[in-house]
């Protein structure tokens, strides 16, 4: 890992979002109204890993005989906790309305939209399934398959406890590629509107030996969002880790530097 690489990775890891939590008004059971709660949430983490305090704070105000699993909503949209927080934030286009205000619910869990999350093991299980799929795409499962169970645990605990060094000590092994030999495929997911994610097989190098770029990936997967030939105006914005990136950035670089801890590049497509 180069020194400036480490700074980049650290900056991505340290990205935080100011969030305000309020309890759904129709779920307040006590005479006393709960105070809102403010937290800075890491972009690269998952909601169930950082909202224990929110749960403890608001559960005192709901009907003790009629509440279930906590879930969060943003302007009518239940938040899919299995996506990294930064992806949820970018998709919500909430940078113009900070702090990002989320509504806390303990009733009517929308199980046709959200995964149940009874414990942190559920998050770990989903997270590891993503890491495994990413390594299958990058190295035909060679690296993850040769790792010890304790390496898997260290990767997970690094993320859960917000320990950059601990996480990257293992994660850099998943990012290896020898000189001239890049990843087999780039693990990515495109999030666009409320439809399901788009995922395809894309190699970082084309058949004629050129680096495949972000622009190439978009042309291959979502051609309808690119500007028409007779117009310069884009109808859509493409955001990765909160940043708008030029289309000529090589995918291999993006995958190594701007992937989330699950080793996937999460690409958000928004209307311009």
């Amino acid at each position: 890992m180069m020194a400036d690489d480490k700074e980049n990775l650290r900056a991505v890891w340290d990205g935080k979002i100011p969030v305000c939590f309020t309890l759904a008004t129709d779920e307040v059971f006590t005479a006393e109204q709960p105070e809102p709660m403010f937290l800075m949430l890491p972009r690269v983490s998952y909601l169930p890993l950082v909202t224990d305090k929110v749960n403890r704070h608001f559960i005192r105000y709901v009907d003790p005989d009629d509440h279930g699993e906590m879930w969060l909503e943003d302007e009518g949209q239940p938040l899919k906790w299995h996506n990294p927080i930064g992806v949820l934030f970018d998709m919500a286009e909430a940078e113009s309305r900070l702090p990002w205000t989320l509504t806390v619910h303990f009733q009517r869990f929308p199980e046709d939209e959200l995964f149940h999350c009874s414990s942190k093991e559920v998050v770990e299980s989903y997270f590891m399934s993503m890491v495994k799929e990413a390594d299958c795409l990058k190295h035909n499962s060679r690296i993850i398959g040769n790792m010890q169970k304790r390496d898997h645990k260290q990767l997970w605990l690094g993320l859960q406890n917000d320990k950059f060094e601990q996480f990257w000590f293992v994660n850099r092994k998943l990012m290896v590629h020898s000189e001239g030999e890049m990843f087999r495929h780039i693990p990515f997911r495109i999030h666009w509107g409320d439809r399901h994610f788009i995922q395809k097989l894309i190699k970082p190098v084309s058949a004629d030996g050129n680096a495949v770029t972000l622009g190439d990936l978009l042309r291959e997967t979502v051609p309808e969002i690119l500007p028409k030939e007779d117009s310069d105006a884009s109808s859509h914005r493409v955001i990765i880790q909160g940043c708008v990136l030029p289309p000529e950035v090589p995918l291999q670089w993006l995958s190594e530097h701007l992937s989330h801890p699950d080793n996937f590049l999460h690409i958000c497509v928004l209307s311009a």
Partner: peptide
């Protein structure tokens, strides 16, 4: 248990 069964988004339907 934790590596065998997980909830995932259905690749074509988007539902859990």
């Amino acid at each position: 248990r934790w590596t065998t069964l997980t909830q995932q988004e259905h690749p074509h339907l988007g539902r859990p």
